[in-house]
Design a protein around this nucleic acid. Structure first.
Lengths: 225, 225
DNA sequence: GATATCCGGAACTGCAGAGTATCGTATGGA
DNA sequence: TCCATACGATACTCTGCAGTTCCGGATATC
């Protein structure tokens, strides 16, 4: 990280007590209950994620985010105190866009369920998410809470979905209850991350199917179809 | 990445043709066959890897590398034209330190071989390698050749070792020849990377054993011991 | 329509860090 | 012993970007 400036000076401008300036810092803003264009927030966060996915944390500049969101730089700093906090917020807010567990497929077989989770749209979306992950990784060592945010927003949902599907397979007696489904549920996210981050190869259907048929199903004792 | 400067100006100082200065740039240096303290190169590269593992690409400064190697900043720039090339060189040179395949264990069983590869020293060394990987990831999008270098130096050797052990297990009839050992050989590196990069949890013996007993062996049809 | 507030745009400041230049010194070869 | 070269240290320049400030215009409320 390049410039991690002096960290939060003058939380209250106590030197001049004349009156509140037109543009007040973000924290005060929220607390004073001023009205703001609330539709700008998600647009800016989305722009930040785009730039992050494309250029990485250090390649990303606030000007890029501002121009992509057609916003002024000042507008961004009115809402977030620093670049770091903007990104943490952006990544944290990704969680909302995850599909709820109620929408999980239920085909009757584990393989059917796992295959059903492969959809063109989810592949593309997953690609972007892991690009964001790559952009964020550089910053993780300085802001550990970001690791949690990224994990919660990007890999945990996938792992959780896998875990539920496998648990259901155990419950219906399809696979052995001794399977280490906790570890197994992490295999696909880890392999996807490895492929995108290190091999720089985009995800496709064949790859995901080979993970299912070559690793997951054999590991839980199901014969290759 | 912060400062990716203007990229290679005046390859030959044609403006002044007086004589060659005492300290010539690195490229000329090598070509002219001047004598240099060759023992400094690996020390500087090693220092660069240390700093890289600790602070990441953008956190790393040339001054840090110089002082860690007890070298002058100018000495580094005499040998490498830029920070980026220094790091690419450092990562590329890691390959040499990998143990040759001839030293692979041969216990007679796949599980025995895989377990035998877990040694305290290899865990520690692996930890550092993947920290370096984390540091390098930020830069990969701008220098794709670095992805190859990192892959070749860090994950490929592990995968290759796994692959050989599994192939031997097939050859001796221990496991089915239909096993997708190509994909399986990537599981441990990918899971290790995931754990270090995203979960920020250090590797230990229990984790590696659970990968072997919970995923690899079940996936090739060997019963849990 | 007057007032207040926020907006986008743009100019500005400050600083860290890449890369360069210089200097006094250590070293090795003739 | 002398010369050449490369060394470490240090001081320097230059540039990109985080964060700030200012301004004219849009919007909303009354």
């Amino acid at each position: 990280m390049s410039h991690v400036q002096t960290e939060q000076m003058n939380p209250t401008p106590s030197s001049v007590s004349e009156n509140i300036p037109a543009d007040v810092p973000a924290e005060l803003h929220a607390k004073l209950g001023r009205k703001r264009d609330l539709t700008r927030d998600p647009e800016i966060l989305e722009a930040a994620l785009d730039v992050l996915a494309e250029t990485g944390y250090d390649g990303m500049t606030i000007d890029m985010v501002a121009s992509r969101a057609k916003a002024g730089k000042a507008t961004i700093y009115r809402r977030w105190p620093s670049k770091a906090e903007l990104i943490i917020d952006a990544v944290s807010c990704m969680r909302k866009n995850n599909l709820p567990t109620s929408e999980l497929p239920d085909t009757g077989t584990l393989r059917g369920d796992l295959i059903a989770m492969i959809k063109p749209q989810s592949i593309k979306e997953g690609d972007r998410k892991f690009q964001i992950m790559a952009g964020v990784l550089a910053m993780i060592s300085q802001a550990p809470e970001l690791a949690d945010a990224a994990n919660t927003a990007i890999v945990a949902p996938r792992a959780q979905a896998n875990l539920l599907l496998m648990q259901r397979a155990i419950d219906r007696g399809e696979i052995s209850a001794k399977s280490d489904i906790q570890t197994l549920s992490l295999v696909t996210p880890a392999m996807i991350a490895h492929r995108i981050l290190i091999l720089r190869t985009p995800i496709n259907r064949e790859f995901l199917v080979s993970l299912i048929d070559g690793i997951i199903l054999p590991a839980v004792g199901l014969p290759h179809p």
